[in-house]
Computed example of a mutant assay.
Amino acid sequence: MKFIPFYLVFGLFVFLQSCGNKQVEENKLLREKVISIHDEVMPKMGQLKSFEKAALQKASEMNGLDDPDLEKIDSLKNLAVQLNKAYEGMFIWMRQYKNEDGDQTPEEVKVYLEEQMILVTQVNEEIKEALANANRLLGS
């Protein structure tokens, strides 16, 4: 009878420990998903800058024509702004992203990673949209 409270406390400890480990594993998977969304578009960062430069150059060339297409020139300049914004968005996200959990509880880490998933997904979509627009407008 004396051992019943001990087994009860031990069983509760094991249960809580296994729940904590489960959350840590879920956080690890969530962190991997966040990084994979980042990794999907990170190799395209140079392409963003190349397209930005090409859009500005083409706008400049068109501006020098006798009868410039002002609407097309504006579209190219807006594209350059969009490409730069997408480029900067990635680096803004990377600077604020914390790869370490620090003193946070597993529950706090989960909330943080869920917020990061939303942010990195937005960055990913902005980059893909900017590249699609560049392909459309520049014909590349």
Score class of each variant (00 low, 15 high):
residue 11 G to N: 06
residue 14 V to C: 05
residue 16 L to H: 03
residue 16 L to I: 07
residue 17 Q to F: 15
residue 17 Q to C: 14
residue 20 G to W: 12
residue 21 N to M: 13
residue 23 Q to I: 13
residue 23 Q to H: 07
residue 25 E to W: 13
residue 25 E to V: 05
residue 27 N to E: 11
residue 28 K to N: 15
residue 32 E to T: 12
residue 32 E to G: 12
residue 33 K to F: 08
residue 33 K to D: 11
residue 34 V to R: 04
residue 35 I to R: 05
residue 36 S to I: 08
residue 36 S to R: 05
residue 39 D to K: 00
residue 40 E to R: 06
residue 43 P to K: 07
residue 50 S to P: 00
residue 51 F to K: 06
residue 52 E to F: 06
residue 53 K to P: 01
residue 54 A to C: 05
residue 54 A to G: 06
residue 56 L to G: 03
residue 57 Q to M: 10
residue 57 Q to S: 10
residue 59 A to I: 08
residue 59 A to M: 12
residue 60 S to D: 11
residue 60 S to I: 10
residue 60 S to R: 00
residue 62 M to T: 11
residue 65 L to G: 04
residue 66 D to G: 11
residue 69 D to I: 14
residue 71 E to K: 01
residue 72 K to N: 11
residue 72 K to C: 10
residue 75 S to N: 12
residue 75 S to K: 04
residue 75 S to H: 13
residue 75 S to R: 08
residue 77 K to L: 14
residue 79 L to H: 04
residue 81 V to A: 01
residue 84 N to M: 10
residue 85 K to E: 15
residue 85 K to I: 08
residue 87 Y to S: 09
residue 88 E to K: 00
residue 91 F to W: 08
residue 94 M to T: 08
residue 94 M to K: 10
residue 95 R to E: 15
residue 98 K to M: 13
residue 100 E to D: 01
residue 100 E to V: 11
residue 101 D to M: 01
residue 101 D to L: 01
residue 101 D to F: 05
residue 105 T to I: 11
residue 110 K to F: 04
residue 110 K to W: 02
residue 112 Y to G: 02
residue 113 L to D: 04
residue 115 E to T: 15
residue 121 T to E: 04
residue 123 V to W: 00
residue 124 N to Q: 15
residue 125 E to H: 10
residue 126 E to Q: 09
residue 127 I to V: 09
residue 129 E to V: 14
residue 130 A to W: 04
residue 132 A to I: 02
residue 133 N to R: 07
residue 133 N to D: 05
residue 136 R to E: 11
residue 136 R to A: 14
residue 137 L to T: 01
residue 138 L to P: 00
